[in-house]
Design a protein around this nucleic acid. Structure first.
Lengths: 357, 357
DNA sequence: TTGAAAGCGCTAACAA
DNA sequence: TTGTTAGCGCTTTCAA
């Protein structure tokens, strides 16, 4: 019986067990159900009861036990964020947007990093599902390995893919127009007079980690290739070295800059690629745009601190996360609605001239 | 009776309710207790039973319900991160470290942003406590308003303060040696020959948000003042304009650069201050270190992309979060141990010369 | 080694 | 409007 429990509590150290709804009900002189109704704001309660309950709750410093509530409602009011790496500024902004969107819909956010590793992704997914999150934001680690994701979706887990996506997975998707953004930016450079435009491609070996294909990078690269092709410009293989990470890109670009037919423009596929490109230009003592034009993805803080500031494609990272939260909230409310793909617009900000010297 | 429930389930859409430990037990032909012991790896179970249970679990695609487990164990194996803003690269790295440290101790992380607002902090704290997190990482929003934090600590909530702290709160603390780092860096600049060193101070009005004092910024500023005082250099008021955010700092520094007695060096108290300082130097077309020396806090990506790269104080942001997670794990394991303050070392990286022209 | 049964704190169906 | 009661899925005594 409950009595035993309360007798027990008295013998415990102060503050050990927080007041339960039972305590509040007793203090207020009503039943648990009435107390729950008053505190939860559902059902009907008389003004008098409500006042008594609220007073009792305040007196006892009552804090609802969300775990117990989840137990019976079957909903945790929690969303999972399974992203590559919060320390990456882009994902950090996505998560901020997701967090705000979740909050606006009364959800909390559990964060798990995958480091783009399918194995960690699988582990993280399991953890989130064990915690019975109501929905999951996912930036899939790999286009290829995703049986675990398929299994989760098959089980009915609400999932939204963000930034990149696995086409086979029938989930909501929130992305930006990567292909178009890249194609338009490169076309802009071509229109400005460039023909020798190089773009380090995402890929290549890495001792630490297997390579995982990502739609985002592939779409952007396709945009580059198509812009060049549309203009009738051939892209020599050496203008598209495969590289990863700031350092790898730096080295690849250095090779390029020191070799024959030096490109007149460099296009960066994301923030780390841009950093590597600028590193290489700095190392070769090239000024932009006089010696070389630099443009590419992600309008991070630092792009405006350079002299001159870089021309960039800005992604609505925050909105990506915000939309993802809204998509999940909508799907949870109506699981039967067909999966939707939301494509947010990027914006092109031309700062330093793109024209060749 | 349970039977009713299972009859019910059959009529539900496929995949609606995941298998419970009851289902696994039935499938394996053992009791719930035995199934739980086999699955949870506690108590004693015969090899034969264990095998049967594991096989049944695999067959039913069983996923333990962490909510139900928390209900009975009284632990959620979840930690809360109540930080200013994940989108801030510094906090993003702290959170990454925290997340890794949590994972290493089998905890998950719930993330809540406070935007340095005591009101949001209070709300976030309530949410986390309602979710019965086992511990909370906190970057307190304000030195002044913290009754809610005191209440949480009084209730026995495990808390670790990170980056900055409220001395009155008896909790574990993980910070860096802000005062020392600032004092040493400024002393270094003085030794290099500077006397006119200006430092925008954290403060001033903001229409959007009330101002909140933070130990971190105050410690750093004290370090600057003491370094100057120790060298017998007087700091005119105009060398310490109050400012906030990149833009505010930029404007304040512009004033300074355009006025009389232009400083020969600028010290930035954090990443956004550094950005504002560089913005101002760029706007005035000043080159560093020839026209003005720039140095300060946070070794972010972009400080090495400038030409020449900036001299900076690097904070172990990741380790800050990692240590916080360890501190919480230790406190949860032994709530009676006395609160400890961990101070991590910063490192000074001198890149561009600090010497005045 | 196993099983029966109590109960964690809450919600929700039903009855009064 | 209120109270009674039956669970949610799990862990954990206590017996067998």
């Amino acid at each position: 019986m409950s009595r035993a429990r309360y007798t027990h509590r008295v013998t415990m150290a102060s503050g050990a067990a927080p007041a339960s709804i039972f305590d509040v009900a007793r203090e207020a002189g009503v039943s648990r159900a009435t107390a729950a109704r008053a505190l939860g704001g559902y059902g009907s309660v008389s003004e008098r009861s409500r006042a008594k309950v609220l007073a009792a709750a305040a007196k006892l410093d009552y804090s609802i036990n969300a775990v117990a509530r989840s137990m019976v409602t079957g909903r945790t009011m929690t969303l999972g964020a399974l992203v590559a790496d919060v320390a990456n500024p882009f994902f950090a902004r996505v998560i901020r947007g997701f967090s705000d969107g979740a909050r606006a819909n009364d959800y909390d956010v559990i964060l798990v990093n995958t480091d783009e590793s399918p194995a960690k992704e699988e582990r993280g997914l399991r953890v989130l599902m064990e915690n019975r999150v109501d929905g999951i934001l996912l930036t899939p680690a790999s286009l290829d390995k995703h049986e675990h994701l398929q299994a989760a979706v098959d089980r009915g887990q609400a999932v939204v893919q963000v930034d990149r996506y696995i086409p086979e997975l029938e989930t909501d998707v929130v992305v930006v127009d990567n292909y178009d953004a890249a194609r338009r930016a490169v076309s802009r450079a071509i229109a400005a007079g460039h023909t020798r435009i190089a773009t380090p491609e995402h890929g290549g070996a890495d001792s630490k980690q297997e390579f995982c294909r990502i739609t985002t990078m592939e779409d952007r690269f396709r945009g580059y290739l198509d812009a060049m092709a549309n203009a009738g410009i051939e892209v020599p293989d050496r203008y598209r070295p495969k590289a990863r990470h700031r350092e790898g890109v730096r080295d690849a670009v250095l090779d390029l800059l020191r070799g024959p037919d030096r490109p007149t423009a460099l296009f960066g596929l994301d923030d780390s690629f841009m950093l590597g490109i600028v590193d290489a230009a700095n190392a070769e003592n090239l000024a932009w745009p006089a010696d070389i034009a630099i443009f590419g993805f992600d309008d991070t803080d630092w792009t405006t601190v350079l002299r001159p500031p870089l021309s960039v494609i800005a992604q609505p990272a925050y909105e990506l996360g915000l939309c993802a939260a809204e998509a999940l909230a909508a799907r949870i409310a109506d699981p039967s609605r067909p999966p939707a793909m939301t494509t947010l617009a990027t914006s092109w900000t031309e700062r330093s001239s793109l024209a060749p010297a």
